[in-house]
Design a protein around this nucleic acid. Sequence first.
DNA 1: AGAATAATTTAGGTTAACCTAAATTATTGT
DNA 2: ACAATAATTTAGGTTAACCTAAATTATTCT
Lengths: 228, 228
Amino acid sequence: MTEPLTQNIQDYLKAIYGLTSDGGKASTTALAARLGIAAPSVTGMLQKLAALRPPLVVYQKHRGAHLTPEGERAALEVLRHHRLLEAWLVESLGYSWDAVHEEACKLEHVISEEFERRIAAALGHPVRDPHGAPIPSAELVMPPTNDVPLGSLHGGERAVVRRVDCEDAPLLQRLKSLGLAPGAELNVLEVSPFDSGLTVQVTGQKPVVIDPATSSHIFVETVETMEA
Amino acid sequence: MTEPLTQNIQDYLKAIYGLTSDGGKASTTALAARLGIAAPSVTGMLQKLAALRPPLVVYQKHRGAHLTPEGERAALEVLRHHRLLEAWLVESLGYSWDAVHEEACKLEHVISEEFERRIAAALGHPVRDPHGAPIPSAELVMPPTNDVPLGSLHGGERAVVRRVDCEDAPLLQRLKSLGLAPGAELNVLEVSPFDSGLTVQVTGQKPVVIDPATSSHIFVETVETMEA
DNA sequence: AGAATAATTTAGGTTAACCTAAATTATTGT
DNA sequence: ACAATAATTTAGGTTAACCTAAATTATTCT
Ligand SMILES: [Mn+2]
Ligand SMILES: [Mn+2]
Ligand SMILES: [Mn+2]
Ligand SMILES: [Mn+2]
């Protein structure tokens, strides 16, 4: 290992990882918005990360940045910490799922590898965090998933909620009250051709209408209907 | 509340608290040694802490510093975090008592008040950490103790170990293997008039000789002998 | 293509903590 | 009392991250 990365750098790498999951580049502006930092500061940091030896990002002026293998490893390390911590705050300390993000965001930079090992073992080496996000393995491999956006379903399809990709506490509370949490089964009753709004029925609940802004945070796995 | 204190300032306050427990002042040099920081840097920080509004320390050139009530409250807050965390790492994650200090030292600055409340409740609101150090209450009052240094006992006295004031992992391991941990009962067999070395017998163990450098870390509560 | 707009970078400056070397002030021993 | 020694402070400088305002470069629209 090289020198330990600062907390700030870890946050940058995590953000770049998140913004490049589609295979593209993370732009200066997108990073600035996500991190709440002024764009010029981001430029400076990207230049620095690209100049490190070994470099953590590949960066080209005006074209944004993406992670090098080293940068990705560092990002996955932090992400593993974050998601294990979230799982463990919920399972072991009784936090609600809308309250864990902030706490995990601070702890993730500070825990030791021993701490990581112990909570992973205590939880039985979970593969998903409380929001359904996949947890990178101890070897820093991100487990593959079959999750698709809820908004991609058609009327009549059945699915199981796998992931709610959201850090906003009020929205998480609302979704939980609607039963829209990982593991919930649902039926898509109707898709509005105008605004793509979805009418869905979670098993055992009343049907609800979900606007596209909300459904974009929800990922599901479709279920084969048993009867022909 | 005012602005949150930086991690560094919290460490300074904790160190000043530790160095002034005898009612005296913490000298620049002693702080520098304890924190591993150059003396000029400490001077600068003390000046800054004394200039804060409200001031966290009272500082006079060449005379060292001590905490103001605000400074003491901040120190006790961090100390409560530290000791609760140590207790909780041992009880809940199975850490050994010689491995918790480092981890707690990083986490203490980062956990929320909610985290503090939850681990305190999970542990049943403990009053001592795994080394026997008293844990400040949620209201930030340090519980009083009757602990006296092991070295202050005379031949023939009985006592119960209450506290091992030490962060050195190898020494902690050695003491544990000798049975010298909080709760252990012991008998002082002999005190050397030359070097103040103690021969003690922990109940159920073979007698051992403890040099003054070691015994200075051990605090006990004397036990009245039941038989006349 | 060329002007308007938007994104990005450069320039210059701030804050928190730290450092070393030199100057100053206390303390101590005779 | 006063020189030698030890402790402390001042002076000047570094690094990591940030910021705003101005300058530059891309992109988009007619
Ligand atoms: Mn999260
Ligand atoms: Mn790790
Ligand atoms: Mn400790
Ligand atoms: Mn607290």
